[in-house]
């Protein structure tokens, strides 16, 4: 299952919005308006869903969910552009899907601006230098030159998978013994509490590291990702991280009365950890209180570390504070689990 998830998810978890359905209301039918439409559809982001005769007709398409974006070109577009040096366009966006709306709008704006510039350069031969000063920006993306989103999604998804497997397995474990009653038999034995917790921890820990190995292998096989940093760094951090997550799972397990309860609890906590983990949304853009929560979220540290090591090649020295904090989590969660597991009621 985790293998399949790792193979499928990164392809779907794409930030780029493609196939935006565009309805055009071209009231101008001029050369310039055709050029503009050509340019938009040639970008690859937009599918021309419909040529509408009127704005209302286009809006109906939006209502039927056949169009996401309406671009209205007024009938004086070419005339205004040539004569007055400026023309107005109208853009209506279906904002039900917020990401699609904002990204689609931004794409369209960029294309139109680009077109604007193109038209200008066609006309303005003189003066040689543009009367307006223009700042042109060229950027280079460090550590991920092609901005391949898979490079930074795959390590993140790997972290999530590791967390889900570790935490769920640990969360249902002790509580399962409570359900089938074997814990009664264990409790009357002289076995020590921390022995019992360790006995639960170690097999899952080994399994987690195994899953990580499989995951790294798959990310190489399917996505060609080879960590820039060393594998040792990843494994050292993962080893500590797994202790923390398993400890949290066991902690839930000691508090729950049945498997349903502990599954629901771990699902709830996992949801928060994933959404506030910085996988899908940047932690830096979160409100201050959310940032505080991420500071107590082991997932966010591991995702950060994975990205640092895989993309940037950070060494153990670079992540030592992450490592220390994670060790802290591991000690607190496991200590708490040992403490809250009571052999008598």
């Amino acid at each position: 299952m985790p293998v399949i998830q790792l193979i499928i998810l990164p392809w779907a978890a794409d930030y780029e919005v493609k196939n935006i359905k565009l309805a055009v209301v071209d009231q101008d039918h001029s050369e310039y308006s055709r050029q503009l439409i050509n340019k938009i559809t040639a970008s690859g982001y937009f599918n021309l869903a419909q040529y509408a005769a009127s704005y209302n007709q286009a809006l109906q398409q939006v209502e039927k969910d056949k169009a996401d974006l309406v671009l209205q070109i007024p009938n004086s577009f070419e005339k205004d552009l040539v004569k007055e040096n400026e023309a107005k366009l109208f853009m209506a966006i279906n904002a039900i899907n917020g990401v699609k709306a904002s990204l689609g709008g931004a794409y369209l704006r960029t294309i139109i601006q680009d077109y604007n510039k193109q038209v200008r350069t066609e006309w303005i031969q003189f003066p040689r230098f543009s009367p307006e000063t223009q700042i042109e920006i060229s950027s280079s993306n460090w550590y991920n030159p092609l901005m391949n989103y898979k490079y930074f999604m795959v390590p993140g998804i790997l972290v999530i998978l590791l967390t889900m497997i570790g935490m769920n397995l640990a969360a249902i474990n002790i509580v399962k013994e409570k359900e089938i009653g074997t814990i009664e038999q264990i409790n009357v034995t002289p076995i020590k509490k921390y022995h019992f917790i360790l006995g639960k921890l170690i097999p899952f820990w080994i399994m987690g590291l195994l899953v990580l190995t499989i995951g790294l292998f798959i990310s190489y096989l399917f996505y060609g990702i080879i960590p820039v940093g060393s594998f040792i760094t990843i494994y050292v951090f993962a080893a500590v991280y797994l202790l923390a997550v398993l400890g949290l799972g066991l902690l839930l397990s000691t508090y729950s009365a049945n498997q349903q309860q502990s599954m629901l609890l771990s699902f709830f906590i996992m949801m928060i950890m994933i959404l506030l983990g910085g996988l899908y949304t940047s932690i830096d853009s979160m409100p201050e209180w959310a940032k505080w929560i991420t500071r107590f979220n082991p997932v966010s540290y591991f995702i950060e570390v994975m990205r640092m090591v895989v993309l940037k090649g950070s060494s153990l020295a670079d992540i030592k504070y992450h490592l220390l904090k994670m060790a802290g989590f591991a000690i607190v969660f496991n200590g708490w689990a040992v403490f809250s597991y009571k052999k008598r009621s």
């Binding site: 089938i180 009653g181 074997t182 814990i183 009664e184 038999q185 264990i186 009357v188 034995t189 002289p190 076995i191």
Partner: peptide, 28 residues
């Protein structure tokens, strides 16, 4: 003391021998 709860509470996924071995080991 030896305790045998009313509900069967040995590990159902361990074999007879493994169960016995397990409890022997726990008691050193």
């Amino acid at each position: 003391v030896g305790y045998m709860p009313g509900k069967f509470s040995l590990y159902p996924d361990l074999s007879v021998e493994e169960n016995l071995n397990f409890f022997a080991t726990i008691f050193n």
